Structures are given as C-alpha cells and as structure tokens.
Amino acid sequence: MGVLRSLLAWLSVPVICMFALPAYIVRPFNPDNNRLLGWTMARVGRAILGMKRPLDGAHNMPVDRPVVVIANHQFNDDLFVMGDLMPPRTVTVGKSALIWLPFFGQVFWLGGNVMLDRAHSRKAIAAMQATSNAIIQDNKSLWVFPEGTRSRGRGLQNFKKGGFYAAVMAGAPIVMVCNGEYHNRTLGWSGRREPVAIRILPPVETVGLTVDDVPALIASCHQQMADAVASL
C-alpha cells in the first residue's frame, strides 16, 4: 500500500504541472507561480501519502522582505514535506538537466528558477551573482538546499557556499528550514507515511557582512541546523 501511495503521489506531480503550464505561459517568470505550485504539490502529495507534517516556528519566515531560505535535503519527497513553505516571490536552485523532465522541467524554467550546470563552475558562480541582483532589484527570495545533494537520512552534509554568498551580497537574511530525519517508512496496514517534523529557525541577518565572513556564517548555520535536526 505504501508503494502505491508513493507512486500516486509522484504521478500527481506531472499532472499538476501540466494543468499549471498554461498559467506559466500566460505570466512567464513570475516567481509567485512557484509558491502556488509548491503549495499545491505539497498538499496533494501529503494527502495521497497520508503524511502529517508538524510545523514549529512558522512565524520565523518573513513574508514582507526578500530572504534566502536554506533547508536540509534528504529525499525527493522533500517536495511534499516542504513545498508549501515558500515565502512570496521565491525562486529556487536546480540542476539544468531538470528542464528535460516532462511538464515539471518546463514550469521550473518558466518560474524563473536558477538552473545550474555544476560541470561549469564559472557559469554557476555567474548564476548566483545574477540571483543576488534579483534579490535586490526584483524583490525575490531564494530557496537553496546548501548540501547540494540528498543525504538520504544520513545526517546533515557539508554546505556549499553559493547561497551564503548570494545572501551576503544581497544583504538578505538567511532563514533555516530544518526537517527531521526520515526514511520513508510507512505506518500500519494503510501504508500511511511516517510524520516528518519541521522547524523554522529565526532569521540570521547578513547586513554588514562581507565575503570574508562567509566561512564563519556557514559554520554557524550548519551547527544551528544540525542541532535543530537532531532535536526533531
């Protein structure tokens, strides 16, 4: 039953994207498209999975100014766990190969999200610089998985620097979204997915920081997130 629930949840993603695609075409690169789509996919996905998602610290997510959100990344199912937590006008970061996924790739691109080719580091750095400018000039927020890959429930991995540089260069606060470790286990005969708890930590201000402060900023955020994840 759990396998069937998971299959149906993921089949809902391209279907939702297919119905959303006309709206993206009508207002392309509008970042609020991402928030509405993320909300829909997360709520539908959790309903199909039978997953509960206790949330602590929702008031710590600013909605009146641009922020850089960093979150730990465990499985692809993080889409259902956290997709409805995006603040207004949020773009996110993904691999350039995503554009080839039917329907999802097209709405991802039309959402104005940052598509990185990690094989070309100079292009990746240029993309993050452009993102910093967008935070300042276009009042956009940025959602980043700083580990750069899925941890598969094996604890918090090392952080990559890009999102922190973007935050410092834009003077935007960093908001940490911490989801407790999970392993896609099911509960009982119905195959409902185990609950996944979320804690949103208070914003960390970056105004006045320089690129020289980035290593210490990364270390501090990593420690705070590791402590929060361990306590969930």
Rank of each mutant, 00 (worst) to 15 (best):
R150M: 03
S231T: 09
G180T: 12
Q223G: 11
C178F: 02
A58R: 01
G208A: 09
P102M: 12
M51I: 02
N72P: 06
Q129N: 14
R65W: 09
D78I: 13
W100G: 15
M115S: 03
I125W: 08
A130E: 15
V204I: 08
W100I: 15
L110H: 05
K123V: 14
T186N: 09
T210I: 05
R192F: 10
I135A: 05
Q223I: 05
W39K: 12
P102E: 11
N133Y: 15
Q224G: 15
N30T: 14
C221T: 03
P87A: 11
A124W: 01
A124K: 01
S220F: 14
V44Y: 01
V81E: 02
A42T: 03
L110M: 10
G45P: 00
P54W: 02
K52T: 09
M18S: 07
K52S: 13
L110V: 14
S141K: 00
Q74A: 06
L98R: 06
F164K: 03
V204L: 12
G148C: 01
L116G: 05
K161R: 14
V207S: 11
N33H: 14
M86I: 09
R150I: 12
E194W: 00
N158I: 13
G2M: 11
R193F: 06
D138I: 02
S151G: 12
M18R: 04
S220V: 13
I218D: 02
I25A: 11
H183C: 15
W143M: 08
V67K: 00
G191A: 10
N34L: 10
Q223F: 07
R118A: 11
V63H: 04
I48S: 04
W189D: 15
R53N: 05
G111D: 11
G2D: 08
V26K: 12
R152T: 15
G191N: 08
R65G: 08
H120W: 06
D84A: 09
F75L: 03
V68H: 00
A219C: 12
W10C: 13
G111Y: 13
F29W: 12
F29Q: 08
R154H: 08
N158H: 10
K160Y: 07
P31I: 15
L187P: 12
V91M: 15
T90I: 07
K95D: 03
D227L: 04
V175I: 10
Y24P: 01
F29C: 06
P22F: 04
A134M: 06
P146T: 05
A219Q: 14
M128V: 04
L187W: 05
Y24G: 01
V67E: 02
P102C: 11
N179M: 12
H222R: 10
I135R: 00
D212Y: 06
E194F: 03
P14M: 09
G38I: 05
V196G: 02
A23V: 13
F80D: 02
P28G: 08
A97M: 12
M176R: 02
G163N: 03
L21I: 04
M128I: 07
I99M: 04
M18F: 10
